[in-house]
Every structure is written in structure tokens, then in C-alpha cells.
């Protein structure tokens, strides 16, 4: 039994007085510690809301979320969070921003890690944050987050402002650091390709609900991409999405036992898995992340 990094139960969060459409609606999932979790979903799926709840910046409308077994507000010291727009004090220099991290994390601050991340980007420590480019700000924000030596690292669209080279380099640094310290990382993105290869856990949100949750390998193994004749039946398998082109049918299914002959079967990629679920909001959700393996 591994430790739990983040666990949510019946989690809902609405904004505004009417709460006609909640940002998160009855979400349940469990993320074991030490995982690199991709938090995927279209714009407005509730990714940022979920991360800010986990960071203890807002309180749920209903349900609970716990981080490292406690309320998010109780574990601020052990969790780092980088918001989507990378907020930093514009009037501070890079060096002062790192000192900000040191002063506000007196028991955890690792100056060497933070300074290395900044130095790798060739940033002048005396440059004011307001003079930095978007990518450079991202680097400083990540340095601040990693300098804290978090046990759980929450990153909201971390790579959006980075050029491909910097993205590759920063991602590698992040993964090496996480692997070395066993950090749990939750990384949101609507670009699936950005996360492929670095993540071993998937949480797919759609319209505020959990669509897929679990270890990436298990989720991929639970799905098959099949191609066959359009008039063939896919009973009793769960069809996530099917498309017919002429007399040929292509479908993403969750096989219930053997698929039988007449089907050309391949394993889906992460992107195919995600896109198929996003294109069909009515497809049933699948959770493979708890000991109970409850399908929601």
C-alpha cells in the first residue's frame, strides 16, 4: 500500500452566488505519492480550480480534498504550487524573488536548487522580474517552487510560455529533481503531447468531472483501438468512441474479455485515449486509481 499524495471525495467547487455550473462537480480520485500525474482536460474543465483547491487557496463548495493525508491548508509547507499566469512581484529582482522564497520558507529553503534553475536559464540575478520574458518568468516561478523542496508539486500549465528548447530542458530538470527526491508532481495541460513520456499517472477532467483516473499504463492497457467492418458488433465491450468511414469502423473500446476475430487491434497512444474521451463526453468514466477500483 503506497502513501496517498492527494485524495478527493465528492469534491465540488462552484463560483458565484448562483453556482449554476460548478467548475468541479462531484470529483473523486486518489493519487499515490511519488507519481508524476498529468492533469488533462479542455479549457474550462476545472484543472486550475482543482489545483488551487489542492494548494489550499480556496475551499471546496462540497466534498473534501486532502493532501498528504491532511487538509491542504495544514500542509502549505510541504506543497508547492505554480499558478497558470506565474504571478511574481514585478518590482523585485530575480535575486530578491529567490530571497522571498527563502524568507517565507525558513525551514525548507534549498538555495542551491533555486539558484541552479535560474542560472541554467542565463538569468541576471539583478534583473527586475518585470523586464523578464514569459518563459523567463516561468523559470523563476519554477525555481521558487523547487527551492521549497516540496513533497507535492502542483503545476498549472507550467510549460505554456516556454520555447521548445527551454521546455525540454526545464522538464528534464524537473523530472530529474522529482525522481531524486520522490516528489509527487501534478502537471496540468491541454496539450497532451507536452506530457507524454514524462507522466506515469493520468487524471482526465471534462466539464468538471473525472473522466479517467489511474496509472497511465493501466489506463492504456484497459483500452484498445480496433478497426473492422462497419456492420460488425462490438458487444459486450464498452465503446468509448466509434467512427465509421465508408464500410470501415474504427473504435476505442474497453474490452470485456477477448475481442474475437475480424478486428484489427492496436494499443492506443495517450493522445488517442484522451482525444477519444474528450470527443465523446457521454462515454462512461473509468477510475483505476484506488484499491477498491471503483468505476464511477
Amino acid at each position: 500500500m503506497t502513501e496517498t499524495a492527494i485524495e478527493a471525495a465528492a469534491l465540488s467547487k462552484g463560483f458565484g452566488r448562483r453556482r449554476r455550473k460548478p467548475a468541479l462537480d462531484d470529483c473523486a480520485f486518489r493519487l499515490p505519492a511519488g507519481r508524476i500525474c498529468a492533469l488533462v482536460g479542455p479549457n474550462g474543465a476545472g484543472k486550475s480550480t482543482l489545483l488551487s483547491l489542492a494548494a489550499g487557496l480556496a475551499r471546496p463548495s462540497e466534498g473534501t480534498i486532502s493532501v498528504l493525508g491532511q487538509a491542504p491548508a495544514a500542509v502549505r509547507e510541504r506543497v508547492a504550487y505554480v499558478a497558470q499566469d506565474k504571478p511574481l512581484h514585478p518590482q523585485l529582482t530575480v535575486a530578491d524573488t529567490l530571497r522571498f522564497g527563502r524568507e517565507l520558507n525558513p525551514r525548507r529553503w534549498d538555495a542551491a536548487v533555486a539558484e541552479r534553475i535560474v542560472a541554467e536559464g542565463g538569468l541576471d540575478p539583478d534583473a527586475k522580474v518585470r523586464t523578464l520574458s514569459g518563459g523567463q518568468r516561468t523559470r523563476v516561478a519554477l525555481a521558487l517552487a523547487l527551492g521549497k523542496r516540496p513533497e507535492v508539486l502542483l503545476l498549472d500549465e507550467p510549460m505554456a510560455d516556454l520555447d521548445p528548447l527551454a521546455r525540454h530542458q526545464l522538464m528534464a530538470a524537473l523530472m530529474a529533481d522529482a525522481a531524486e527526491h520522490g516528489t509527487t508532481v501534478v502537471m496540468s495541460s491541454h496539450v497532451v503531447a507536452e506530457l507524454d513520456g514524462s507522466c506515469d499517472h493520468l487524471l482526465l477532467l471534462g466539464a468538471g468531472r473525472v473522466r479517467l483516473a489511474g496509472p497511465l499504463d493501466d489506463l492504456l492497457a484497459a483500452h484498445r483501438l480496433v478497426t473492422g467492418r462497419a456492420d460488425a458488433s462490438l458487444e459486450p465491450h464498452t465503446v468509448v468512441e466509434s467512427r465509421t468511414t465508408g464500410r470501415q469502423l474504427t473504435a476505442l473500446v474497453r474490452p470485456e474479455g477477448s475481442l474475437g476475430d475480424g478486428w484489427q487491434v492496436t494499443a492506443p497512444t495517450l493522445e488517442e485515449l484522451v482525444l477519444a474521451h474528450l470527443r465523446t463526453p457521454e462515454a462512461p468514466a473509468l477510475r483505476l486509481d484506488s484499491a477498491r477500483e471503483a468505476a464511477v
Binding site: 499524495a5 525558513p106 525551514r107 525548507r108 538555495a111 513533497e151 520522490g182
Partner: peptide, 22 residues
């Protein structure tokens, strides 16, 4: 049990400075 929960106490290289803190 993963290493995630072994809390390190780094505070390396933090030179004590004068003036206000935190």
C-alpha cells in the same frame, strides 16, 4: 513506502543576514 515522505531539512547555504526576516 516511497521517499516522498522522508522530509529533508536542507536550509543549506542560508547565510544569516541582518535586518528584518520573513
Amino acid at each position: 513506502m516511497t521517499t516522498a515522505l522522508t522530509v529533508e531539512t536542507p536550509s543549506t547555504g542560508v547565510a544569516p543576514s541582518r535586518g528584518p526576516r520573513g
